[in-house]
Design a binder for these strands. Structure first.
Lengths: 414, 414
DNA sequence: CAGTATTTTTTCGAGGCCCGAAAAAAGTCT
DNA sequence: AGACTTTTTTCGGGCCTCGAAAAAATACTG
C-alpha cells in the first residue's frame, strides 16, 4: 500500500521539481519553471530563492541569448557547479574508468586504467576500484565538498537494490558487494548499476526529443545488453537489473551461448558468435573470449567486400536481433532503438536482416516506421548516464529534502 | 515532466488512500487505517467523517469478530454498497456477459447471451452490447444512482487509452471504438480493457498474499493471452494493451499462427495449434476456428491415456510456453504464474515440458522454485477484474476528488 | 528624455491541510 | 463504582500554496 502524503513531503517534492527543471532546461527563468511545473509564480519564487540561499542554484545574467524583448528581462537560473560533486565509475572487460563530476555534470578529474579483470581475484578487483577512487579524491582541491554519491556501472547483472554485482562476463566471480565495500571504505552512498541502463539514461539527457518516454538502447558488443525506458521510467527487473535481452531465446536448443545455455540471442549476435559463424566453427564450439574490436572490424570489412561466411554471420546476427526485438515489441509495443557499441559500427551489415526478421513478427508490424540509431562509442554514454543518475540522486534525496539535509551533506574532503 | 503538487491534490490523494484502505481491508478501524497509510489519527478521523457524511463509507458495529478487548472498542468502517454502481461487460467469442455491480463489488443484476460474433457486422456487435446494457439499466430500481463507469473486457488488443478495440480474434472487424459509442449512447465513462489484464487485477484482489507486486496471468484458450503485474502495477504496452505473450516468437519461420505470422508461441500452444498437431496436420495448415472446449477435453483424455500424437501435441505446446516464459523472465525476472482458462484444465499434460523448456533458459534458472497455479474458469475472473477496475476508478477519480465531484456524479437513473 | 507599456519577480494575506497533544468517549477489569 | 485501556475527536500551531497586487526592470514612443 502506498504511503500517505504528509504535509512536509509537499515542499520536498516541489523543491525537487524546481531543481529538476533547472537541470533539464539549462537556463530557465522563474516564469519558465512556473509554467513547466504548473506551480504558481509565488511558489517558484519562494523555492528558488531558498535554493539560491542554500547554494544549489545561482542567478545568471541571461542577457545574451534572449533577444532583448520588452518588459523586465528574465533572469536565468542555473545550477551552481560547486554545490556538490559525485563520482562515476565504469567497470568493463579489462578496464576501469572513473571520474569526479561537478554539480553541473562536468568532469573535474578522471582516470582510466587497464588490467586483466578476468584473471584477478575478487579482492584484487575491489581493491583496484577503491584505489582509483581514492586517488581521484586525493586530487581534489582541499576544502572542496566531499562527493555525495558513487555510481558504478558494470557489465552484467546487479541486484534490484543496486548494491551487488550478481554476475558479470568480465570476471568469473559472482556476487561482489561493491556498494557495501565502497560505502565501508569511502563513506559515500553507492549504487551498482547495469551499464546498458546507464546508456538509456544518458540517451534521454542527450536527446530528449527523440528518447523520451519509450525507447530501447541495445549494446552490441562481445555480449548483448539492453537498457529499456518505458513510460518515462527505466525498466528494471524485479529482482535484478533485468532486461537481459541477449538471453531471450532465439532458437530453442540452438547455438551455445556464453551463459552456458543454448539458442540465446547473444549466441548469434554477440561478437564471439559472429566470429564463430564467420569462421564456420560449429555452433556448439565454446565461445571464444579473445575476439577483439580489431578482429571484428576486419570481419566487417570482409563482409562488406562481398558474399561469404562473414556476411552470412552478420545476417544470422541480424536475424537473431530482429526476432528478439520483435518478441520484445510484442510485449511493450514498438519504440525507437539505439544500437550502441562496436556492433553499431557494422550496423549496415545487420540492418537488412534485422528489418526482415522484425517484419515477420507481430511486434514489428510497421517495421519500416521503427527508427534505428547507431552510436559506436559506448563508454562516454555509460559515463554520462552514471553522472546523471548520481546527480539526480543528489537532487532528489539530499537537496530536495531541505536545508538540514543539505547542511549535513556538506563535509569537506580531508 | 511530472506536474507540480498543488495543495488541493494532497487531500484528494489522502482521501483516495482512505477509500482504498477500506476497500482492501474489509472492515478496518480508523486506527488501522492510520497505521497502514502512515497518516495521523487526526487526519484519518477528519477524512473518514467527511466520507461518511458524503455517503461513501458507513460505520458498522464491528463487535462480533473482534474479541472484546479492553479499551474503547474499534468502530469498523465499511463501504456503503449503495454509494454507487458500475457496469462490467465481457465480450468473448460468441458470448457477451454483463452485470451491474454495487459499490462493494457485489453483482446486483447480470445477463449473458450467446451470438455469433465472428459473422456479425461491426454495427450489429456494437448494438448487441448497447442493448444488453440498456436492459440491465432498465431493470434497476428507480431512483438508484446511475452507474458511474463501464468497463468492457475484450479478447484481443485495445489501445493504450483503453477506448478502442484494435483487434480481436472474435471478429474480423478492426478498430471498434466501443468507448466512444457506449459513452455516446449511455453517457457513462467507459474503458475497453484486455481480458487478461483484468484477470491479473482480479488475482490480486483474490489472493493478495500470493499475487502482489510481481506475477503473471496466462490465458490458455483458443489463443494465448497474458496479463502482467510488475512492481505492483499492471503492465501495458505503450500504444496498446500490450503483453502479447502469445505472439512472442518461439520458432522463427515455424508454425502458422492465427495472426498470419509464423512461429508465435500461440501457433504451438493455442487450442487450435494443439488440435492441429494432435491430428498430425501440417504446421502450415490454416488454424481451425471451430475447435470446441469439448474437443479439447477429448484430446486431453487421449493424451493422458498414453503416448501418441495427442500427448506429443501437448508436449510441443508446453515447450513453446516454457521457452516463451523463459524469454519473458529474462526481461522481468521470474514471478509466480497463474495459468487460466481451458488449457489450465490440461495443465498436467503441459507442466513437464514447460518446466523442461524453462530450465533451459536464462530466466528460468531456478525453475523449480517458480510456482504455477491453475484456474480453469476464466470468465468469473475477468468479470471480477473488470468490477475492481471500475470501482477503483470511481474511488480515485470521483469520490477522492471531493464533495463537488461526488455531488455531480449522483444522477438517478430515469 | 520623460512617460507609458510590458513582462518578470516579489510580497502579502487568505485558505487549506496535516500533525501532535490533550481531551473525550466507550468499553473492560478489579 | 472507580481505575484502566484503547479508540476517536477536538484544538491550536505551523507550513504550504495560491491569487492578487505591488514592485522591478526594461523597451517603446512622441
Amino acid at each position: 500500500m502506498s504511503a500517505g502524503i504528509r504535509h512536509d513531503d509537499l515542499r520536498r517534492r516541489n523543491r525537487a521539481l524546481v531543481i529538476a527543471a533547472v537541470r533539464r532546461s539549462g537556463l530557465p527563468s522563474r516564469t519558465e519553471i512556473a509554467s513547466t511545473t504548473g506551480l504558481s509564480h509565488s511558489t517558484i519564487s519562494a523555492i528558488s530563492s531558498d535554493l539560491i540561499a542554500e547554494g544549489m542554484l545561482a542567478e545568471t545574467k541571461a542577457g545574451e541569448h534572449a533577444t532583448a524583448r520588452r518588459g523586465r528581462p528574465q533572469v536565468a537560473l542555473t545550477l551552481n557547479p560547486k554545490a556538490a560533486t559525485v563520482i562515476v565509475a565504469v567497470l568493463s572487460l579489462n578496464c576501469l574508468s572513473a571520474a569526479i563530476i561537478d554539480y553541473c555534470g562536468e568532469p573535474v578529474a578522471e582516470e582510466q586504467r587497464a588490467f586483466s579483470t578476468a584473471t584477478m581475484s575478487k579482492h584484487e578487483l575491489v581493491l583496484e576500484c577503491i584505489a582509483m577512487l581514492r586517488r581521484l579524491m586525493a586530487g581534489m582541491s582541499p576544502g572542496a565538498p566531499k562527493p555525495l554519491r558513487i555510481v558504478l556501472a558494470v557489465q552484467g547483472i546487479s541486484d534490484a537494490a543496486a548494491r551487488v554485482m550478481l554476475w558479470s562476463p568480465i570476471t568469473p566471480h559472482r556476487d561482489i558487494a561493491f556498494a557495501d565495500v565502497l560505502e565501508g571504505e569511502l563513506a559515500i552512498p553507492t549504487t551498482v548499476e547495469n551499464d546498458c541502463n546507464m546508456m538509456a539514461i544518458a540517451l534521454r539527457w542527450r536527446d530528449p526529443a527523440r528518447y523520451r518516454d519509450n525507447f530501447i538502447a541495445i549494446l552490441l558488443s562481445h555480449g548483448i545488453g539492453m537498457g529499456l525506458v518505458i513510460k518515462g521510467e527505466l525498466f528494471t527487473g524485479t529482482q535484478s537489473s533485468g532486461g537481459e535481452f541477449g538471453h531471450m531465446i532465439h532458437r530453442p536448443g540452438g547455438a551455445l551461448c556464453r551463459c552456458g545455455r543454448r539458442g540465446c540471442v547473444e549466441a548469434y549476435a554477440g561478437d564471439y558468435a559472429i566470429w564463430r559463424n564467420a569462421h564456420l566453427k560449429n555452433e556448439d564450439s565454446p565461445p571464444e573470449d579473445a575476439v577483439t574490436n580489431t578482429d571484428m572490424q576486419a570481419l566487417a570489412e570482409r563482409a562488406r567486400a562481398g558474399e561469404g561466411p562473414e556476411r552470412e554471420a552478420y545476417r544470422k546476427a541480424g536475424t537473431a536481433i530482429g526476432y528478439g526485438v520483435g518478441s520484445l515489441f510484442a510485449l511493450i509495443d514498438p519504440a525507437p532503438i539505439a544500437f550502441v557499441g562496436g556492433g553499431a559500427a557494422a550496423f549496415d551489415l545487420l540492418e537488412p536482416s534485422i528489418r526482415t526478421a522484425l517484419a515477420r513478427t507481430a511486434g514489428g508490424q510497421h517495421s519500416d516506421a521503427i527508427s534505428f540509431d547507431t552510436i559506436p562509442a559506448e563508454l562516454p554514454l555509460i559515463r554520462q548516464g552514471c553522472a546523471m543518475r548520481a546527480l539526480v540522486f543528489v537532487d532528489q534525496e539530499i537537496f530536495a529534502a531541505g536545508p538540514q539535509a543539505v547542511q549535513e551533506s556538506r563535509i569537506a574532503v580531508a
